[in-house]
């Protein structure tokens, strides 16, 4: 489904981003998995690449550093000559109740979740805009952006910004054949979730009509649809991937 496509996935070394990188490569894409910790992609990519039609490659930089973003994107462009897909998945999450919101954590969340997303979108869209077939950008939002959640005032605000910038970018970049969509995952079974209190977690799962957490692959498949040619007339949308959650 993605054969011949070159994609960049930020936060691609673990969790949802790792699943996105893997699903894309399984479907034929050359994937540049972005991470900050050097070596974190190679911990699994060397073995993984043996059995797939595509390939996961690593690239290490901080998406909140505009210069680093520019250099990395140029590196991808020079190596592959085109960039067809970008998944802005990298994100930082601190859950703090009102009255206990740390300025440092707030700035970190906006720096990565919002400014980093804009950096990547702005830089990659300049490459895509010069390509005959444009490209597709997927921003990972969150159901908290749409519904809100206790203890997630700042995180939900950053993801709300992601939803808004997705819609505006879609309108501005449509003429260049660049599609911009967002995926809003519900509660997802990542390493972070394994540390949650079992009773509280079960209460939250009880609100999911499908009766289970999302697996990272569930999110990755939705991203694949958005990056693939199956969605060539879809832009400016926010797709909830939450197992029909009642919040």
């Amino acid at each position: 489904m993605l054969t011949g496509k070159v994609c960049i996935v930020t936060g691609g070394s673990r969790g949802i981003g790792k699943a996105i990188s893997q699903v894309f490569a399984q479907n034929g894409a050359i994937v540049y998995a972005v991470a900050t910790r050097v070596g974190s992609v190679e911990e699994w990519s060397a073995d993984f690449n043996q059995g797939v039609s595509g390939e996961v490659r690593s690239v290490y930089f901080d998406i909140s550093d505009e210069k680093a973003c520019r250099e990395a994107v140029m590196q991808v462009k020079r190596e592959c000559d085109h960039i067809d897909g970008l998944v802005n998945n990298a994100g930082v999450e601190f859950n703090e109740l009102i009255g206990m919101i740390s300025r440092i954590n707030m700035e970190k969340m906006f720096s990565v979740n919002v400014y980093g997303t804009i950096n990547m979108l702005q830089i990659v869209s300049r490459i895509m805009g010069r390509q005959e077939n444009g490209g597709s950008i997927v921003n990972i939002a969150s159901m908290t952006a749409l519904r809100g959640n206790r203890g997630q005032l700042v995180y939900s605000a950053t993801k709300g910004a992601v939803v808004s910038l997705t819609k505006s970018a879609a309108k501005e970049l449509a003429e260049k054949k660049i599609r911009i969509n967002a995926i809003a995952p519900g509660l997802t079974n990542t390493d972070m979730m394994k540390q949650a209190d079992p009773e509280k977690l079960q209460n939250r799962i009880n609100n999911i009509c499908m009766g289970r957490l999302a697996e990272p692959e569930d999110i990755a498949k939705a991203c694949m649809f958005m990056v693939s040619d199956l969605s060539t007339y879809v832009s400016g949308q926010v797709l909830a991937v939450d197992g029909c959650t009642i919040m």
Binding site: E66, R70, V73, M74, Q122, I123, R126, G129, R130
Partner: peptide
């Protein structure tokens, strides 16, 4: 800007 970036294989700072 787009044409210059393409021709000279550069990416301008904003």
């Amino acid at each position: 800007i787009s044409s210059l970036e393409d021709a000279f294989d550069v990416m301008f700072d904003v």
